[in-house]
Design a protein around this nucleic acid. Sequence first.
DNA 1: ACGAGAAAGTTGAAGCTTCAACAATGGTAT
DNA 2: ATACCATTGTTGAAGCTTCAACTTTCTCGT
Lengths: 164, 164
Amino acid sequence: MTAPAPRWLSEAEQRAWRSYLAANRLLAVELERGHQQHGLSGSDYEVLVRLSESPERRLRMWELAKGTLLEKSRLSHQITRMERAGLVRRESCEGDRRGQFAVLTEHGWDTIEKVAPFHVEQVRAFFIDRLTPEQVQTLTEIFAPMAEDLRKQCPKDDDAIGPE
Amino acid sequence: MTAPAPRWLSEAEQRAWRSYLAANRLLAVELERGHQQHGLSGSDYEVLVRLSESPERRLRMWELAKGTLLEKSRLSHQITRMERAGLVRRESCEGDRRGQFAVLTEHGWDTIEKVAPFHVEQVRAFFIDRLTPEQVQTLTEIFAPMAEDLRKQCPKDDDAIGPE
DNA sequence: ACGAGAAAGTTGAAGCTTCAACAATGGTAT
DNA sequence: ATACCATTGTTGAAGCTTCAACTTTCTCGT
């Protein structure tokens, strides 16, 4: 019994896969740089976005973890740093004494309001504005279900990255 | 003079952008987990791939840095760790006494040969096999030039991530 | 009511990445 | 030749992420 022959990618598949990987990485670096110009990390920005979109500008830690796809331990450290920077504050949760909320502060709100327009411009410049409406559609058709499937894939037993 | 009104994303654009981000992240986590099962990190794997595809299974540090899109300092630490693990070895370069090669060891070669088939299966399962040939084509059309442009964007003055 | 197990978060240590400073060599114009 | 700047690569410290262990509280079955 020998191992099954690997199903290597075709040339075309390889091109698609590798350009995707490269664009990914480069885009991440570029966006990160954008955030840093405002004194934020990418994770800071993501947390600010999620909180700013939430009712009362606050979320339970585990909701925020799922929203941002950060694992709970990392999020805990992340919030500690952001608290130190005055962007968020923790509030404990009546009704579940294990629970904590992360709450956007005034300063956090001002920050996201100030930074978001720059970020959108970057996303447009490097991504969205390069695409035709058909391509926007195609990307959604590809990546939305892919993300769905990958969420299910996440092991349930550990710090799962569950459904949104 | 006030700031120009932000050009927010449309609903459709937002869906595309956010699914792309989510799929990205989840895919990265999943692939990372795959590598870990063989005792490698994602960066380890990438370095092994690049070296295994190179003449004499070796590359100058800066070539490897561009190939993997890692900055030089990170690569230097990365190679130190991989050297410790017996996957690569450094060789100094005649003709340019500043230079170093990273060279694949036997063990490094064996490792990539063993691991690559699993990795390809993962890439197929979560990405390539989900796509029609037209979609493969579309992705290449989108991401290949995007990556090109982003490379140019990289500041030349610092540890640039230059053209492949 | 009780106990077992699940869920929510935190913590500290180890590992990885980033940043700035550095050493050494190479290239080039004068 | 020499002075000057660019290139190649390394280093250590600081910051971020991951991992496993832990605490506290909740839930559910009996």
